[in-house]
Computed example of a mutant assay.
Amino acid sequence: MKKHIYITLLVGAITLVSCSKEEKSVQNQDQPISVTLSNTTFSNTSYATASGKLVSKNSVNVSTRMMGYITSLRAEVGQQVSAGQTLVSINNTDIQAKGGQASAGIAQAQANFNIAKKDYERFQNLYKNQSASQKELDDMRARYEMAKAGLQAAQMMKNEVNAQYRYTNITAPISGVITAKYAEQGDMASPGMPILTIESPSILQAQVLVSEQDITLIKQGMAVKVVIKNTNQEVNGTVTEVSRSASNTGGQYMVKITVANSQSLLPGMYVNVQFPFKRSGSVNTDFQQGVSVPKSALVEQGQLKGIYTVSSSNTAVLRWVKTGKIIGDEVEILSGLDAKEPYIISANGKLYNGAKVSVK
Rank of each mutant, 00 (worst) to 15 (best):
Q301N: 14
E330V: 05
Y308H: 05
K325W: 04
N314K: 14
V310H: 07
V331C: 02
S313M: 09
Y308V: 07
S312H: 06
V321M: 08
V331K: 01
Q303L: 05
T323G: 11
I326C: 00
T315W: 01
W320L: 14
E300L: 10
Q303P: 00
S313I: 10
G306S: 09
T309D: 05
Y308M: 10
Q301G: 03
G324N: 05
Q303H: 09
Q303W: 01
V331S: 02
G324R: 11
T309G: 01
S311T: 15
S312I: 12
I307P: 10
G302K: 07
K305N: 06
D329F: 01
G306N: 08
L318P: 10
I327Y: 04
K325Q: 14
E330N: 12
G306H: 04
A316V: 11
T315L: 06
Y308K: 03
A316E: 11
L304R: 13
I326F: 07
E330D: 13
V317S: 13
V321Y: 08
I327K: 04
K322G: 00
K325M: 12
E300S: 14
E300T: 13
D329K: 03
A316N: 12
G324A: 03
G306Q: 09
V317C: 07
I307R: 08
K322E: 12
G302S: 06
Q303M: 05
T323M: 08
V310L: 10
I327G: 03
E300M: 07
I327R: 03
T323F: 11
D329W: 00
E300D: 00
V310K: 11
E330K: 15
S312G: 04
T309F: 05
I333P: 06
V317P: 03
E332P: 02
Y308C: 09
Q303A: 08
L318S: 06
K325Y: 10
N314A: 11
G324W: 07
T323L: 10
I307V: 13
K325V: 12
T309A: 06
I327H: 03
Q301E: 13
S311C: 12
V310M: 11
T323E: 06
R319H: 12
I333N: 02
K305D: 00
G328H: 00
K325R: 11
S312W: 01
S311G: 14
E330W: 06
D329H: 07
G324I: 08
Y308I: 03
T323K: 09
V321R: 08
R319M: 08
K325N: 10
V310G: 07
T309S: 11
W320S: 05
T315F: 01
I307N: 02
V331D: 01
N314E: 09
I307S: 03
T315Y: 00
L318G: 09
